[in-house]
């Protein structure tokens, strides 16, 4: 059971949240101007790293706010939690978890 530190409500079981996939994927400004390849890229292609991953979560049965998380997809350890309008934080090897 992941324990996810909601930035507004504190740590809660993952069952209170809904997963939102890769973070920082902006909706295209002018989708009508994209080529088929570019549109396919936006719709279907996502990063899928074995390691640190910036992703979105929403606290569905709590405050219902979306937020970003950097999580290690191997250990499932959450290394950072930040707002949707913030850039992905730089994490070094010695960075502790944002618990």
């Amino acid at each position: 059971m992941l324990l996810i530190p909601c930035p507004h409500c504190g740590p809660r079981n993952e069952t209170e949240f809904h997963y939102g996939g890769q973070a920082h994927v902006a909706y295209p400004d002018r989708p009508d101007l994209l080529s088929d390849d570019e549109w396919a890229e936006y719709l279907f292609f996502r990063d899928n790293p074995k390691g640190l991953f910036a992703e979105r979560w929403v606290h569905g049965t709590g405050c219902r706010k979306w937020f970003n998380v950097v999580r290690d997809t191997v250990t499932y350890r959450i290394e950072a939690v930040y707002r949707l309008d913030q850039p992905r934080p730089e994490l070094t090897a010695t960075t502790g978890g944002a618990r």
Partner: peptide, 13 residues
Amino acid sequence: DSYTGYGQRGSFH
């Protein structure tokens, strides 16, 4: 499990 993961494990619920 809903999240992406390479841990070859998931949550008990």
